Simulated assay, not measured.
Amino acid sequence: MYAKVIIASWCLVALVNGRPDDSPVPEGYGYDAPEHQLSYGHQEKHEKGMPFDFEYAVKDDYKGLDFGHDSNSDGKVVTGKYYVLLPDGRTQIVTYTADHYNGYQAEVTYEGEAKPYHPAPSYGAPKPTYGAPAPTYEEPAPVYGAPAPTYEEPTPVYGTPAPTYEEPKALYGAPDH
């Protein structure tokens, strides 16, 4: 489903950003790609492409994987096909062409019949659950003992001080009534 949306979006972008109405369409393959006037005033010149041809495929029956891609180009037009086995059992095949004049054009087809998806069973015994591992270290032994006191108990130098004041004297007499 997502692939359809993505491909439809690419096609819509290709339609909207296609060649300008006033640009001439060259006939045949002997012409360079036209310079397109972009909306912000710059001109875009497409480099001539390089021919290539590649192909790959992956098939893993154990995991249920089957996909691949092949593509080739003559330097001007890229053609190709990619496919993927979907979880519902169908194979989605996208056949495409792309060039500087027509953009990316794709055709999406499906082979096979859609079936309900059932995840593959997991083989083997269930994996045990483990608790936290026990520590593998021992409590460190102290390297040194408590420090020995480096002072002696002080001996008193002075006795208890005697009071140095006298009994206060009254400076005033009792008030008269």
Rank of each mutant, 00 (worst) to 15 (best):
K4E: 10
V5G: 06
V5W: 01
A8T: 09
A8P: 05
S9Q: 11
L12D: 14
A14Q: 04
A14N: 09
V16M: 04
V16L: 15
G18W: 00
R19I: 02
R19H: 04
D21W: 10
D22K: 04
V25H: 07
P26E: 05
E27Q: 12
G28P: 00
G30N: 13
Y31F: 11
D32T: 12
E35F: 01
E35M: 03
E35I: 02
Q37A: 13
L38I: 03
Y40R: 11
H42K: 10
E44W: 06
K45A: 10
H46L: 15
E47T: 14
K48M: 14
M50Q: 15
P51R: 05
F52G: 04
F52K: 07
D53G: 07
F54T: 08
E55M: 10
V58T: 06
V58H: 15
K59M: 09
D60R: 05
D60K: 02
Y62Q: 08
G64D: 05
L65N: 06
D66P: 00
H69Q: 14
D70S: 10
D70I: 02
S71P: 00
S71H: 04
G75A: 08
V77H: 01
V78I: 15
K81C: 01
Y82M: 04
Y83F: 14
V84Y: 01
L85S: 03
P87L: 07
D88A: 09
G89A: 09
R90C: 13
T91F: 03
V94G: 01
T95N: 09
T97Q: 12
D99Q: 05
H100Q: 05
N102S: 13
N102Y: 06
E107C: 04
V108H: 01
P119V: 06
Y123P: 00
Y123T: 04
G124Q: 01
G124N: 04
P126G: 02
P133G: 03
P135C: 12
P135G: 13
Y137L: 12
E138C: 07
E139F: 11
P142M: 10
P142D: 11
V143Y: 13
Y144I: 12
G145K: 10
A148W: 13
A148I: 05
P149E: 08
E153P: 05
P154A: 13
P156Y: 11
V157K: 09
V157L: 08
A162P: 10
E166Y: 06
E166W: 05
E167A: 15
K169T: 15
K169I: 12
L171E: 14
L171R: 13
Y172E: 13
